[in-house]
């Protein structure tokens, strides 16, 4: 036997949070999905969207959706508006302190609506 844990095949639940145009290009919004605060970012002008925790572990405030979106060496990231640590939008990892990693969430744009799964 090798390490084969059964893959959870339950159907993913998607929550519609807002129309895409509510998220201005290269900014974020915060959505409340099943009591969890999720920061959703739109990178560029198109439908490239990412979702990570809205919680900033450094300031302990729920503010990441209000950070500046950008990239470091090509990795899309957001900078906390409070003390400016950067978080990868792909992995949720803090790029300035690799011991810290935020949750990431599946997110997609369907018929112009942004949907998140938590």
């Amino acid at each position: 036997m090798s390490q084969t844990e059964s893959i959870n095949s339950t159907i993913q639940q998607w929550t519609t949070i807002c129309p895409l145009e509510r998220i201005l290009p290269n900014t974020g919004v915060c959505a409340l999905v099943k009591d969890r605060q999720i920061a959703v970012f739109r990178v560029g002008e198109g439908t490239d969207v990412y979702a990570i925790d809205n919680y900033d572990p450094f300031s302990k405030a729920y503010v990441l959706s209000r950070g500046i979106v950008g990239d470091r060496n090509g990795i899309p990231k957001v900078a906390s508006p409070i003390y400016k640590q950067n978080f990868s939008l792909i992995t949720g990892e803090c790029l300035d302190d690799l011991t810290i990693r935020l949750g990431t969430f599946p997110v997609q744009v369907v018929d112009g609506q942004v949907k998140v799964s938590s």
Binding site: A61, V63, R66, I68, P81
Partner: peptide, 22 residues
């Protein structure tokens, strides 16, 4: 303005100074 808003620090983008609790 839409073409500038994503450039602003949160202070500028909400026209107020952010505090430690958000």
């Amino acid at each position: 303005d839409p073409s500038h808003v994503s450039l602003q620090d949160t202070n500028d983008s909400f026209l107020a100074n952010i505090q430690r609790d958000g």
